[in-house]
Design a protein around this nucleic acid. Structure first.
Lengths: 243, 243
DNA sequence: GAGTGGTCTAGACCACGAG
DNA sequence: TCGTGGTCTAGACCACTCA
């Protein structure tokens, strides 16, 4: 037995799919929609919450509910491109980087396998698609692997990737832990997403041939904009040695 | 500025963490809690919805809100163990399998790269932890790779894995597409989870050395019970050939 | 300042679960 | 049958955005 909010959500989905609302267009106000569907505002809002959770609708406080413009998803490619996770996306995204020096603390000491207080550089990477934020990444690299001129301010993303890759030995292993969850309060603000839109959270640890952790990254990918793809080629040795 | 529901949710989190409520214990009724916190029932319910989304609380219609018993997460290991994804979990789970024959249709023809109507066997795999469902998997295998005695009814899980592995050539590649999303209505029922608890959805396609798809699986892992781990060992050839 | 969404209330009635 | 959660109402007031 479908509840009213499901009926309303389904009707709006249909109208959006049928093109009755243009991409990027604002829907009628919640008060107006509530009148149209003859329900109270909380009921109508819960219907919209379903559409938000699917990434069909963008809610902007003070402005309105908008039909999402971009419906194409980016594919995050696992295993490759450590130090440049944003470059593994398959669509043109604008990338900005802010670098900060900080001492290792908390989870970071475990992730990077370093002593507390040992010097790290954090790269806060925000990708945008058009003018809207797309995804977030925090990269942590031991300071001695970071050229001094990249270690603070807002370096160019391409340069960060290239220079880091030059400075360190080849990677031996990339380990990626993937979780699904709802966004934190900060993430809903930073990514301009609703609290009911799930995100992919990827913790990636890259190790060099000497067994040293050369980079740890925390990636947050909203589920309406990104999936992740992992490809494993089986070789006889691997399939026995990894058991 | 924290809203009331966040304050209430935080207080309940604290009390649960402090052990004021035992694992598996029922919380006071929503009406009672609403009185205690001096808020209306919708407000109190939205606070509980936050805890559900974190997997801290199990809501059971007609019975009450229960503190989740198991708080340990299973780790799904990517890349390995095609044909037995459930075996890659790191905790003891009870597994049940139901096999059905069906013709390829819809997405399945694309995933398995077969003609529509070509014969497949579906294995519906449900894992339980104790008496509660843990996760769901649908496996699809071309019929000619399935021994006849496994192709219907409820075969033993271990046998399915072993016999399938014997019958087919070694795997060349496993591709896993990972998404985060909220559960569908059927999944909330089948897994006994709230609609606000995100799930990891993994589509796994295994290919043999001849390039034939020998298995496609759709896995659904509730985010409070499972993460996924992917490990990539870099070899010089791979890093250039996969670009 | 006008209009939008965000939060909350104090009820009502329905649907489910267990004794 | 009774207590539980599920859904919904018809408002109120606050916070944000934009002209």
């Amino acid at each position: 037995m479908p509840s009213r909010r499901h009926i309303i959500a389904e009707d709006l989905r249909r109208q959006i799919a049928a093109g009755h609302f243009e991409a990027g267009e604002r829907l009628p106000s919640e008060a107006r929609l509530a009148t149209l569907y003859a329900v109270s505002t909380p009921t109508l809002r819960s219907a919209l919450a379903l559409l938000q959770g699917e990434g069909l609708v963008d809610k902007i406080h003070g402005s309105g509910n908008f039909v999402r413009r971009h419906r194409h998803k980016v594919m995050y490619i696992g295993g490759k491109g450590a130090a440049a996770p944003w470059a593994t996306a398959s669509a043109p995204l604008r990338v900005s980087v802010r670098a900060t020096n900080l001492p290792a603390h908390g989870h970071l000491t475990d992730l990077l396998n370093v002593q507390p207080q040992s010097p790290l550089t954090e790269f806060l990477v925000v990708t945008h698609e058009g003018k809207l934020p797309h995804s977030l990444a925090h990269l942590y690299v031991p300071r001695d692997l970071v050229p001094a001129d990249l270690a603070s301010g807002s370096p160019l993303p391409e340069e960060v990737a290239m220079r880091l890759a030059q400075l360190r030995p080849p990677l031996a292993q990339v380990e990626e832990k993937v979780s699904a969850r709802l966004p934190t309060a900060e993430e809903t603000r930073a990514l301009r997403i609703g609290a009911s839109l799930a995100v992919l959270s990827i913790t990636r640890v890259a190790t060099d041939t000497a067994g040293r952790v050369v980079e740890a990254s925390l990636l947050v990918l909203p589920s309406d904009r990104a999936d992740a793809l992992f490809t494993t080629r089986s070789m006889a040795e691997e399939r026995t040695s990894t058991t």
